[in-house]
Write a protein that binds this DNA or RNA. Structure first.
Length: 512
RNA sequence: GCAGACGUAGCUCAGUUGGUUAGAGCGUCGGAUUGUGGCUCCGAAGGUCGGUGGUUCAAAUCCACUCGUCUGUACCA
């Protein structure tokens, strides 16, 4: 026995997926709905390429030792490092900066595309995924942040989500900055600790108040025994932060009636500062704007516990969260978290231009949304009907032209149709193919039908239903269930009628 | 990145203290049925036991390393 030749193993790089017809159709449907909302709000599309020079993307500068940490990078032929984009915000900042003299501000723009992250993949977490962003560049007022929140809420409903199935949560980074300042972490050299406090607060959903206390204090050990170092804050300061996280609304924390006073115990001991005041006042303004526009707190909720880890946010931050249970393939309920978020980033364009260009915007995680919506049955993935199959009984030239003509007549009438392209001599295989492909109808014309100027149309869906009642194969074959004989001239009309009937049946079943 | 679990046919999984030719179900393909899907029956193909190295007369089984998957955690611009 000869050794097998070493075959090359076909394999997908980890963290990447092939997308099926179903996935692609679902994505198209979803992005079309999102786009419609953005357009209605007066946003215009822009597209930037997948690659950018690495230094333009942000914190990975050319002198970084590992340009592939977190991003996928390659070296151009002139030795410059280029990277695949890891979000759509940094490329937008680059585009705006490069064209700042031509762009009419405020610039309202949206875009969707693939982004890439070179990090550990997990279930529902890939190294290539799609985002769909909207941003307003050059508008400093919180009214544009309020608009973003309302637009996100409208997107959720355009996707078919009902009140109570989602919520847009809003906070202001200045409030958190104010807290940091008040507890003595406002200085330059406390950047790292500040960041760790924010990260700890961000875990409130996951670990609850107790977990956050540990992370802000002495540190936390997880189930596997791995230890996360704590920030080591004082008890009183941790109390204040937990009060913020546990608050359900602004009114729980602050009294606006007489200047600005804190209502809760630990917060009251902190001294107010400019950041605090600006943060709370901006949040109040956003709240007033969206409430007056008719968005109640079941759609847009002012929630001081929203953090968002990103360092570049400078003001309002917001995220869209799904409130219904999402189950995975195994049927377990998974913590789904947010499907989109954003905020104000006033410093991003300044990096390139030196000019103050305020901006705010958000990103929707299309891939994650699809997973969740599929689960909820909100994506009509089964409404693409497989083609009508024209079977082949005579494979000579004359026969093939006849069958091909039928197919073209059907196509011209707008019916999805195809001629069997496999080995026509095994007729059983043709119907088996049609069955597995979920074809609604099969068109059959052999020499007998041909001589009589007739065609047989087999309803494969009805036939499948009838098969349950027939047990022996001879009867099954000879009774030719759900099959009609028609005149050649009536082919297109009859096919359309039968398809329409099947469609009605489907509607009825869906309603039942 | 850190910690743990796991890796046997396309899929789901058996495989005894290390011992002949590594099995089953499902799926795939062929036939019964050369002009009719499903059911039933018969038959076949399909395996570097994740990879490499080691211990041993002998390794799917034990050891080391490595790759991959899953869980938790960290990071997530």
């Amino acid at each position: 026995m000869a050794k097998k030749p070493n075959k090359l193993k076909a394999r997908l790089p980890r963290g990447f997926v092939d997308r099926t017809a179903e996935d692609i159709r679902a994505t198209d449907e979803l992005t079309a709905k999102i786009r419609e909302v953005y357009e209605r709000y007066g946003f215009d599309p822009i597209e930037t390429p997948a690659f950018e020079y690495t230094d333009c993307l942000g914190k990975f500068l050319p002198d970084t030792d590992r340009p592939n940490a977190g991003v996928f990078s390659v070296q151009d032929d002139d030795e410059q490092w280029m990277s695949l984009r890891y979000d759509l915000t940094a490329p937008l900042a680059r585009h705006v900066s490069e064209n700042i003299n031509e762009i009419q501000m405020p610039y309202r723009t949206y875009r969707n595309g693939w982004v890439f992250r070179n990090e550990k993949p997990g279930p529902g977490r890939f190294r290539q995924f799609m985002q769909f962003d909207a941003d307003t560049v050059g508008a400093p007022g919180v009214q544009s942040d309020a608009e973003m929140c309302m637009m996100m809420a409208d997107v959720m409903e355009a996707l078919g989500l009902k009140r109570g199935q989602y919520v847009i949560r809003v906070n202001n980074r200045k409030i958190l900055d104010g807290v940091m300042e008040a507890i003595g972490l406002g200085g330059e050299d406390d950047t790292e600790r500040r960041l760790n406090v924010l990260r700890g607060m961000d875990k409130f959903d996951k670990f609850g108040a107790e977990g956050v206390r540990l992370l802000l204090g002495v540190g936390r050990k997880d189930e596997s025994g791995d230890f996360t170092a704590g920030v080591g804050l004082a008890e009183a300061h941790i109390d204040a932060i937990v009060e913020i996280l546990e608050a359900n609304s602004l009114d729980d924390l602050v009294d606006y009636s007489d200047g600005l006073t804190f209502k809760t115990k630990a917060l009251s001991t902190l001294t107010a500062n400019d950041n605090f005041e600006a943060g709370f006042n901006e949040l109040k303004l956003i709240s007033d704007l969206v409430r007056t526009a008719g968005y109640d707190k079941d759609r847009i909720s002012i929630d001081p516990s929203v953090v968002r880890g990103l360092e570049y946010y400078t003001g309002p931050v917001y995220e869209a969260e799904l409130l219904f249970d999402v189950t995975n393939e195994k049927g377990d309920v998974v913590q789904f978290g947010s499907v989109g978020g954003g905020g104000r980033y006033d410093g991003l364009v300044k990096r390139f231009t030196g000019r103050d260009v305020p901006a705010t915007g958000f990103s929707i995680g299309v891939s994650r949304l699809i997973t969740a919506l599929k689960n909820l049955g909100k994506l009509g993935t089964d409404d693409v009907i497989a083609p009508v199959l024209v079977t082949v009984m005579d494979g000579d030239t004359e026969g093939l032209t006849r069958y091909q003509k039928m197919v073209q007549d059907l196509r011209a009438a707008g019916v999805r149709a195809e001629m069997y392209q496999g080995n026509w001599k095994k007729f059983g295989n043709q119907l088996k193919y049609a069955d597995r492909r979920d074809c609604p109808l099969a068109i059959i014309q052999g020499s007998d039908e041909r001589a009589a100027g007739e065609i047989q149309i087999k309803d494969l869906i009805e036939g499948k239903r009838l098969s349950a009642e027939i047990e022996d194969n001879v009867t099954w074959r000879e009774s030719r269930p759900a099959q009609v004989t028609i005149k050649e001239a009536n082919l297109v009309d009859t096919v359309k009628t039968l398809l329409a009937q099947q469609d009605e049946d489907r509607q009825r079943q869906r309603e039942a």
